[in-house]
């Protein structure tokens, strides 16, 4: 029961979904199963949310270092949960969208989640600079190619790319930095992307097969 049933479920569901692609009357099966997944995921929120609360309440209870911040998490969580589940301050009634403008839920989203989200995202501007400083060094041939490609594209995005190479005659125009940048994006970049994608396609097919056939079962506890 403990080992065989899950393996059978995986095999059955996986095979069913592959076959359904070729059988017109079952063509919506994939969509339905995606919805099934979403529904199960909502049930899983009980586990996830419960875990989040448990972690922070334990910190509170034990007065672990930084327990004060756990109060912030717990209070924020319950405030938002109440705002969303009871649609507090929603201009419409229960049938209005939970994210209706003017509701407490949306106001908190706009003024707490959104600025935090976009600032975390904006950190990338700094990290992309520190990563280029550290990583783009001509340590070996591969790293040099990486560096040169990145540098040409970067240069092509500033006025200096054109300024430096404007003297190149039109019959050699591919060597002008902005054109070269376009050419790199269109040709070698495309080739690399394609090779990666074809490999990924095969990798997914192979892994899916291993899972469906029960060869790969670490996720279920490979307790042999």
């Amino acid at each position: 029961m403990r080992r065989q049933v899950p393996l059978f479920i995986t095999f059955f569901v996986g095979t069913l979904l592959i076959v359904s692609v070729f059988i017109p009357p079952m063509e919506n099966l994939g969509e339905d199963f995606t919805l099934f997944f979403d529904i199960i995921a909502v049930f899983a929120f009980f586990l996830g949310g419960g875990n989040l609360l448990r972690v922070h309440l334990t910190k509170l209870y034990r007065k672990s270092p930084d327990w004060g911040f756990s109060v912030v998490t717990v209070v924020g969580f319950f405030l938002m949960l109440a705002a969303g589940l009871f649609k507090i301050g929603n201009p419409g009634d229960i049938s209005a969208s939970v994210t209706a403008e003017g509701s407490m839920f949306q106001t908190m989203f706009n003024n707490v989640v959104l600025p935090l989200q976009s600032t975390m995202y904006a950190l990338l501007a700094f990290f992309i600079a520190s990563a280029s400083y550290r990583a783009f060094r001509a340590k070996n041939r591969e790293a040099t190619i990486l560096l040169v490609a990145a540098f040409i594209i970067l240069l092509g995005r500033t006025p200096f790319g054109m300024m430096l190479t404007a003297w190149i005659p039109d019959s050699w125009s591919v060597l002008q930095v902005p054109n070269l940048a376009i050419w790199i994006m269109n040709s070698p970049n495309l080739a690399g992307q394609r090779a990666i994608l074809i490999g990924i396609g095969l990798g997914v097919v192979s892994m899916s097969l291993r899972i469906i056939l029960g060869i790969e079962r670490t996720y279920l506890g490979d307790d042999r």
Partner: peptide, 8 residues
Amino acid sequence: HVVIMAFI
């Protein structure tokens, strides 16, 4: 961009 290129 100039700063990043300079750092490289």
